[in-house]
Write a protein that binds this DNA or RNA. Structure first.
Lengths: 337, 337
DNA sequence: ATGAAAGCGCTAACAC
DNA sequence: GTGTTAGCGCTTTCAT
């Protein structure tokens, strides 16, 4: 069996408490005693049992992060940022993915997948407010992303409407007049993309440009293939926009592939703007202009929100925490020749 | 405070043991008793404290996965596969990243970053055999990837030499005669890419084709920018291969970008093969031919190896477990016009 | 089939 | 400054 505090105490001929004091770097221990205990620790190769410590303190030092899909570079990059932000506070991160399925998201929010955590950061896609209201788990929860629930949980996101308007404004500034939006979810249960769609509509309207439904491309998901299908469907319907604003970079990349296959040149024939600023957009034959959310800030805010909930359990959340974003201009929206 | 077994026992008017029996679905409990206890559980909203259970059982149900960088889609996709494989056995996954730095890898292997885990899956880049030999942590460890240490830890990888030879053979079969290898690490401490480089060399030699050092492109890392720099350097040196075999897809994508910028057309002027089969390779103006390791198999083997170590601690590892791979042919190696 | 009690390894009051 | 002890919530003999 592993060596415990007790073993070390016996070896050093002191009490358990003294060993504990040394291990926990307690101030008031005489140097001589510290040295003696340390020697016993080294000889026995003692390593504290964190599980026991956790049981005693009621904290595990682990927070969970649940995202829809690690295959989406945005979430993979975000996960990396969360791991770093958590490490700053000596927390480790348990990672889970939900495939963007409501059922999985409910399970995660209820703690059925990981129940040894001090807090949970969840990026929901399909989760409903009622699911959250029915939540029985008392582990602190922070929500990420477009969905807004107006419940007593902190919510971290960029201003999606403002970000979308910035993207569309950029396209308008480049002289585009027929700007499609790719990434609308039609099924009533899915509202995440609504803010970005709304921003697209608002900005076009403000500029006095038409925003017909024919320029709104529905998708079944938000991956590259979904973008490709949506773009193909729009073109097949005889709609030929001179610009595309996509829900995210993956959809944009899928759309660009189809435009390429159809002989439409980006940005000359069609300009494209994505959303997320995944590294992939910096490469390819045409680099991608995109809205870049500050992932580090999102990660930091999420972790800090959780830690503050841990420190002050009585303080209910419900805050809207906004992270910054910026538009990164690349080749996909260069001016026409 | 949270409700414990004791609270439920009092409410139901039974002993702790009986409640425990119900919670753990122990067979020999009378239906009536079970119902009574269950009622108390529901009323009080009891949820077992896993930390306490872990302390008692000496297991946490958590395994850790440490990869170099989540920003590399290969590792992100692999992480997703590991999470799924672990979930099959009711384990959750703690994720960490090392940035491919030896120091970080040592810390992780020693358990300094996460010490509440039942096992560790580590994908090292810079870690040395001596680091592993000096390892004091007794948590079961499984190694992933190209590096081979021949120590008493199970190691899971595809046959890198065979995979590389398959890729190079494919290029030769397409009529390419000047095939560059992009992704050699020159600093002596870094050998991960050696197997793939070796495969490249072996296959060319077997085909009677020259494999001059001028066709070996050194890199500082294995990201897109590294691939771009390496390709640019080679072209700047006046070397003009008609094919490129890259260490991984990211390097290949970086190289393709430079080829595009220089007006060299893929696959017509230069064919390109990558390694990893990340989703990104299926899109872009030119889709990428690549060696596809079976990520699900790798994840499954890693998790199973760990569980077997847990079940049989006496059995030392040291096995070489091979996962399958296949060549996925896409546009980047289509025949010449 | 159910109960009593010990103890996993640790921390934190409290005592000396 | 150091020792004693209770107890975190659970599982697990051992009784009954």
């Amino acid at each position: 069996m592993r060596v415990s505090l007790k073993d070390v105490a016996e070896r050093a001929g002191v009490s358990i408490k003294t060993v504990s004091n040394v291990v926990n770097k307690y101030q008031h221990v005489t140097p001589a005693m510290r040295a003696r205990v340390q020697e016993a620790i080294d000889e026995l190769g003692y390593r504290p049992n964190l599980t026991a410590r956790h049981l005693r303190k009621g904290r595990t030092g682990i927070i969970a992060l649940a995202v829809p899909e690690l295959g989406n570079p945005y979430f993979a990059e975000l996960a990396g940022a969360v791991i770093d932000a958590a490490a700053e506070h000596d927390f480790t991160v348990l990672l889970d993915h939900t495939r963007g399925e409501r059922e999985q998201e409910v399970l995660v929010s209820q703690g059925f997948r990981a129940r040894v955590i001090d807090g949970l950061i969840l990026s929901p896609l399909e989760l409903e407010a009622e699911d959250l209201r029915a939540r029985e788990d008392d582990v602190p929860l922070v929500l990420l992303g477009e969905r807004q629930y107006d419940l007593s949980y902190d919510h971290i996101a960029i201003d999606n409407i403002a970000a979308s308007r910035t993207a569309v404004r950029h396209l308008i500034g480049r002289g585009r007049t027929s700007i499609a939006y790719l990434g609308a979810r039609t099924d009533s249960a899915n509202r995440p993309a609504h803010l970005r769609l709304q921003g697209w509509r608002e900005e076009l309207t403000a500029a006095g440009i038409a925003a017909p439904e024919s320029l709104v491309g529905p998708v079944g998901g938000w991956d590259r293939w979904d973008g490709a299908k949506a773009m193909a469907r729009m073109l097949d319907a005889g709609v030929r926009p001179d610009a595309v604003f996509a829900y995210n970079d993956l959809v944009a990349i899928g759309a660009m592939r189809v435009l390429h296959e159809r002989g439409l040149r980006v940005p000359w024939d069609v300009a494209v703007v994505g959303f997320d600023d995944i590294a992939e957009g910096q490469f390819g034959a045409v680099t991608l202009t995109t809205v870049a959310p500050d992932k580090q800030a999102i990660a930091r805010l999420a972790v800090e929100s959780l830690l503050s909930s841990l420190a002050h359990p009585e303080r209910t959340g419900g805050r809207e925490l906004a992270a910054a974003f910026r538009l990164v201009e690349r080749e996909s929206t260069l001016g026409r020749r």
